[in-house]
Design a protein around this nucleic acid. Structure first.
Lengths: 333, 333
DNA sequence: TTGAAAGCGCTACCAA
DNA sequence: TTGGTAGCGCTTTCAA
């Protein structure tokens, strides 16, 4: 914790009052543009305040007029384009309510997340974001603070979470591919957990709904390089593949690169469809077709739920806390 | 401004004290893990606190132990990859000091910037970031708050700014291109102001230092599309061009796309070197060679200067507030 | 138009 | 180990 250091003692309202030869209430009036004060007095007060370098204490002020809300936004890595978009969406939603957002980037380190949660508790009115600690630990660290998790199941009563539902979007993607004549559609799933991701389950369901055998799968690290090598592996095992759906856009971008490097043209020789709808997808070549999350809605819902938890006005329920995703056709598939 | 709404009255430390049958100091001790308290008392207090849903007021707490620093980070657009990196760097530097960062995204709108500055003044201890309002207005709105500007000249005494010095990096880039045999090197400058950018001046200086005539120039909007059409224009006017240096990486990525679409291979037919050193540059194909800013240093310096302004301990001077840039060779040039 | 007094909710410093 | 008291710096209410 930094402190105000060895600098001179803080200038208070009383100092200004004394220097201006008035009472502190008069100073307060001058500063807050209340009426009931003579123009010349006001000017004199303002001048001395400036001369003394006076700045009201936000704590003292917040204490008496209890009207500012701050939420802590915890994300693993702001440089990850997905989290950037989530953060931007949350900032936008918060601004609409006049809320302040304190952002914490944990750098994907558990220890940092713990430290952040520890200090956050005394700094904000609610916590939202991506947390990876076990529930009981989060519970302990956030003691009574409203918590809104994004894209994470939970059992603890006190938490809320925003659920991502990509089912219909993925269906649309697969329908789109089959309509274009694709029969051999693979998936680049993520590699983190042992079980298949829920996005993979949506993929399987969509495949069988379209009357196709469940497609071949390769697992990718969540990086461009990961997508690159996963595609190579998949095509090695299943050269007949003409289209891939990926766990997210980053992996898809890697697939795009691998395709180009192997001399395949996208989408002519290989169609690629990602998931997330990152702006980044418009920058690559060809622009990425993707199942796009409604990130702004995600941000809005997150903040909305935090607001309800905060005021105790009936929080939204699970089915209202769901963000959809829809197929965004660009050029890669 | 949101308010605590119609919810029940806030639970205070006195409520807990009364319910637990102890004094409020005892409650305070229990909550803050101070010693000097019986284990059973402590547990009882903690339990009642939990039962009552008690949460300490951060304002009251901040008022008495004056040891938390918050800085407001103002940026025009978090989704712009450059600002994302700046923000991430600032967050990292702030975390090292235990500071809290309140992030405001003005969406590039002057009106929002004004509103932000207005409300920020009472919420943070210092303001850092990219501001576009006229100096006198910033001065008025931030009244006595330390302000650290990034990459913007200023006259106002109260402001500090972090300067970006790409001169030697740009020299290195041009030397690199000439060493590879390039003689006709163009520049895609930005289009915003009438006068040439300072990056353009570095380019010119580097060109003449390498014994080349000053290169041809086209002006680009700061977007991928802008870079795309600017490159087309430049090549239309100067088909002999074999290399381009761009105002920033975004424009360079546009140039990359335009080159590919015109059937030119990079870097064989056209070398492209950007400026900024965005991570994004590693995702495109081929990975972008660029004059990379030391963003982390930028963040660190910004926060360091804010700290010095805050404590009154001698602020850094202009020459110490400069961030360099160096050539980062990847594959595009 | 101005000022005195009473808190906002908490912790620090004593005294018990 | 506990509790009383005195603020932290500000705004609000009420009286002058």
């Amino acid at each position: 914790m930094a402190s105000s250091g060895t600098g001179p003692r803080r200038v208070t309202i009383d100092d200004v009052a004394e220097a201006a030869g008035v009472s502190r209430q008069t100073v307060s009036r001058a500063l807050n543009d209340k009426g009931e004060i003579g123009a010349s007095t006001k000017q004199r007060v303002l001048d001395t305040a400036q001369a003394l370098g006076y700045r009201p204490s936000r704590f003292a002020r917040g204490l008496v007029r209890q009207d500012t809300v701050s939420v802590g936004l915890v994300i693993p890595d702001l440089l990850n384009p997905f989290f950037t978009e989530v953060a931007a969406a949350a900032l936008e939603a918060a601004r609409d309510r006049g809320w302040h957002v304190v952002v914490y980037d944990t750098g994907d380190r558990t220890e940092e997340e713990r430290g952040t949660l520890e200090v956050i508790a005394s700094q904000v009115d609610a916590v939202v974001g991506y947390l990876s600690l076990p529930e009981d630990e989060i519970d302990k660290l956030t003691r009574g603070l409203p918590v809104v998790l994004i894209d994470r199941e939970h059992r603890t009563q006190r938490f809320s979470s925003i659920r991502i539902d990509g089912e219909s979007g993925v269906h649309a993607a697969i329908r789109h591919l089959t309509a274009a004549g694709h029969r051999h559609i693979g998936m680049l799933d993520h590699a983190e957990r042992s079980e298949p991701s829920i996005r993979h389950r949506w993929f399987d369901a969509a495949m069988s709904a379209c009357g196709l055998d469940s497609g071949s799968v390769a697992h990718a690290d969540q990086s461009v390089e990961g997508g690159e090598s996963a595609l190579r592996e998949l095509l090695g095992r299943h050269p007949e593949t003409t289209a891939v759906f990926t766990f997210n856009d980053i992996i898809a971008i890697g697939a795009l690169r691998a395709a180009r490097r192997s001399g395949r043209q996208v989408p002519r020789d290989l169609a690629v469809i990602g998931f997330d709808g990152l702006q980044l997808g418009t920058l690559v070549d060809p622009p990425l077709t993707t199942v796009a999350l409604d990130t702004r809605r995600l941000g809005a819902l997150t903040v909305e739920q935090a607001a309800r938890l905060l005021t105790g006005s009936g929080p939204l329920h699970t089915d209202e806390l769901t963000v959809g995703a829809e197929l965004r056709l660009r050029e890669s598939g």
